[in-house]
């Protein structure tokens, strides 16, 4: 009972005359164990995530080329991105198109497949899980898609379509702006049964089977009722987790896109916000502007996440 009772004890013992700081200190001392539990992770997290993020936010208001010390420029980086950088606006548009399509689709696919798999017996479930999950750990093997969608007649898709007479000449899948984004979305969806998918599977397996039996007694007739009345409310924490993974994954996509369509892609048709950030940071060495892009992207994702959270809170509420 340590953590709980001691805390209740403190609130009772604290006299109203004591200052807020003193009270806080007492509470901290009472929860010593909890702080010890978070300390090792917390310290490393502070060092390797929080501090770097704050430095980057600071850099977004400077001109910094990594050779000379940063020079304060105020909002200049932000203004430049919105007012005089046409490519940035293209990247914003592409990112939204990409995120609106792949984010929800990968999210629902992850849940749907996990839910269906959970209906199966353990052995056959393991086989399906492995097959569906394999693409997301395929590493460099995903480059096989560049062979499939290769722009010459040796490409699989072109070879097939030519053979059956659907097209007369090879389509430049990965260089023609008309098709580029479509192909990218297919490949990214192919790899999308990853982190959330596994979390959903483990989460579904952790639901107490007694709940389903009780549900059956209470008159649940089919798997849809079971899903809405039992499974989804039990899965709320995981659903939130999956949503955040989908939002971050789809808004920060670039690592899988750049190898497919090249850098920069034709007419910037496959250029995303993070691709633009990489352009500033790793190619032009303008870390100030790159950091400003990261901040803009961060704010965007926070807004989207708040909205999605509000929608999700209604699930099973």
């Amino acid at each position: 009972m340590r953590a709980v009772t001691e805390k209740q004890g403190t609130t009772l013992l604290t006299s109203p005359r004591e200052g807020r700081l003193a009270r806080l200190w007492k509470e901290i001392k009472a929860n010593k164990v909890s702080y010890l539990f978070i300390a090792p992770y917390g310290i490393l997290f502070l060092l390797f995530t929080i501090i770097p993020v704050f430095i980057a936010i600071g850099l977004s208001f400077t001109h910094y080329n990594m050779l000379q010390p940063p020079r304060w420029v105020g909002w200049e980086n932000y203004l430049r991105l919105f007012l005089s950088d046409d490519v940035f606006l293209i990247a914003v548009k592409n990112t939204f198109v990409f995120a609106v399509l792949t984010g929800p689709l990968s999210y629902f696919a992850s849940f749907l497949f996990a839910w269906f798999i959970n209906e199966l017996r353990p052995k056959i479930r393991a086989v399906f899980t492995l097959m569906l999950y394999a693409p997301s750990i395929s590493g460099a093997l995903f480059m096989i898609w560049t062979v499939m969608f290769s722009g010459d007649a040796y490409g699989y898709v072109n070879g097939f379509l030519l053979y059956w007479g659907f097209i007369k000449e090879p389509v430049q899948w990965l260089t023609d702006p008309k098709y580029m984004m479509g192909v990218v979305i297919v490949v990214v969806l192919w790899m999308s049964l990853g982190t959330s998918f596994l979390a959903f599977i483990a989460g579904l397996q952790g639901i107490n089977p007694l709940l389903y039996e009780a549900g059956a007694v209470d008159g649940i007739r089919n798997r849809w009722q079971e899903l809405f009345y039992i499974t989804l409310p039990q899965m709320r924490g995981y659903l939130m987790f999956g949503a955040i993974m989908s939002i971050t994954g789809s808004f920060t996509a670039a690592a899988q896109i750049i190898p497919l369509v090249g850098f920069p892609s034709t007419d910037y048709a496959g250029h995303t916000i993070v691709a633009h950030l990489i352009d500033y940071g790793n190619v032009r060495f303008e870390m100030g502007t790159a950091s400003a892009i990261a901040v803009i992207l961060f704010v965007t994702m926070v807004v989207v996440q708040r909205w999605v959270q509000r929608v999700l809170n209604k699930v099973g509420a």
Binding site: E27, I38, F48, I55, L297, V302
Partner: peptide, 29 residues
């Protein structure tokens, strides 16, 4: 499972950190 001052804030910060592009924290790191 413990409710202590700062627990909600810490979790909120961890979630927010997922949304900051790693590419720009390379140098501070």
């Amino acid at each position: 499972k413990h409710d202590f001052p700062g627990s909600k804030a810490m979790f909120g910060v961890v979630i927010l950190s997922l949304m900051f592009a790693r590419e720009v924290t390379n140098i501070p790191n």
